[in-house]
Design a protein around this nucleic acid. Structure first.
Lengths: 235, 235
DNA sequence: CCGCTAACTTAGCGACGATAAGTTACTGCC
DNA sequence: GGCAGTAACTTATCGTCGCTAAGTTAGCGG
């Protein structure tokens, strides 16, 4: 790193009422440092302070501690994820098509911003941070949930509370996204294809479980699959 | 923590040829410290050294650095996970039943040992550590893969390479397990039930995608579901 | 132009991972 | 028995980390 030494390019002191303008700069510098250096602990308070041309204690005028700064970054990341998902589903009308676009965009975002995604979804949340979970409950997650509800009303999923279904599908998307990030050397193949397989299987599987009704024991599932596999004429 | 101060109970020096006996003690102390204190960075080299009654530099006689010690813990964790999965499937003969038992045991293990599971599957792997991935490829994962192959031969899944299917199902299991760990305050309901829903949907969904053949576009899936939902007499 | 205070700095604490250099005590050998 | 060799472990220390107490600078209201 060239900029390892002390930065003489000190930031100009903000004018009297505008101390708050440092805050977004700190967040975006933290975000950038996280993305640039693969490991998360390269984003030290000192490095962030250097990046915005300020000394470390100034960070604490805006964030009580490091975890609060990280929470602010997570809020930013979730907003960006939400924007990416909305953009991906733009112009797609069918509920199932939107669901697929959302899922694919989710996985793509995670794979393209692995450190941001890791911070947002794999780090121990020190305390269930209110700001973070407001975003989680309000933007990307809410859009997903609404689309699941649309699928129910379109007769694709059985009617009912969309929340458990959304959580189920989210688990599928998060599963494939996070494994690709953490174990990239496993034979996943193309990211989009792997994601599509998992997401299609999750959605179709949920619908199939609905169709079966009751608890899908291995016996019931086996019998149903054998029934399905018989050619149409023999039914 | 009561034992925060210096530990006067110093460990007796090992006899001449048996310096290696310290190593497993270090690993198990590290594992215990990880489990006891929720956050992973409470397991410092210094804390581990204290726990085994030794000074920090002695750790480095057995592990090149901290990440190597953590890798050793991960190897241990994967072995324990494998044992739990095998025990859960003991006495179950049907391939799909074994698959379900494996998946449930996997999620249960993750939820019951959240810090161990987090370390094993959510931490950035500094370099694809050989030892860790040998375990990953040899024990739990291999058993899973074998059972998927059994399912193929039993006609539950379409014949083919089991590896992509195993990865797909693993993604589902990891997805629900890791989300329950990281966002425990979301309405997951009973762990076993949530896991069963996701795992059944993943397995059934994969089988259904096989049945459909080709790429499951939203249109094809929608049509198939409508076909399925018609009562038997109208076909 | 002066005092008030917002905005930021200097200096430093304790804990961390890691290393260099030293010390202890067991063991094989005569 | 005693001594050399070395395995096993320690003391002391470095640089960095998150974080804080106490000080300093500079712009604005009076």
């Amino acid at each position: 790193m060239i900029a390892g030494t002390r930065q003489p390019a000190r930031r100009r002191r903000a004018s009297r009422g505008s101390g708050e303008q440092l805050r977004p700069e700190i967040v975006s510098a933290a975000k950038r440092l996280l993305a640039e250096s693969a490991n998360a602990d390269a984003m030290s308070i000192r490095a962030v302070a250097d990046a915005v041309g300020v000394t470390p204690p100034s960070i604490y005028l805006h964030f009580a501690d490091k975890s609060e700064l990280l929470s602010a970054v997570v809020v930013d990341v979730f907003a960006e994820l939400d924007a990416a998902m909305l953009a991906a589903a733009d112009g797609i009308d069918s509920p199932l098509g939107r669901l697929r676009a959302f899922g694919l965009a989710y996985v793509r975002f995670a794979v393209n911003h692995p450190e941001h995604y890791r911070l947002a979804t794999m780090d121990p949340c020190p305390k269930p941070d209110v700001a973070v979970d407001e975003v989680l409950a309000s933007s990307a997650f809410a859009h997903f949930n609404t689309t699941v509800l649309d699928c129910m009303q379109a007769g694709i999923f059985a009617q009912g509370d969309p929340l458990p279904v959304t959580l189920e599908l989210w688990a599928a998307a998060h599963g494939i996204a996070s494994l690709i990030i953490v174990k990239p050397y496993l034979p996943w193949g193309e990211v989009d294809e792997a994601a599509d397989r998992v997401l299609c299987a999750a959605a179709l599987g949920h619908a199939a479980v609905d169709l079966l009704g009751g608890e899908p024991t291995p016996e019931i599932v086996t019998a149903w699959l054998q029934e399905q596999r018989r050619p149409a004429g023999t039914r």
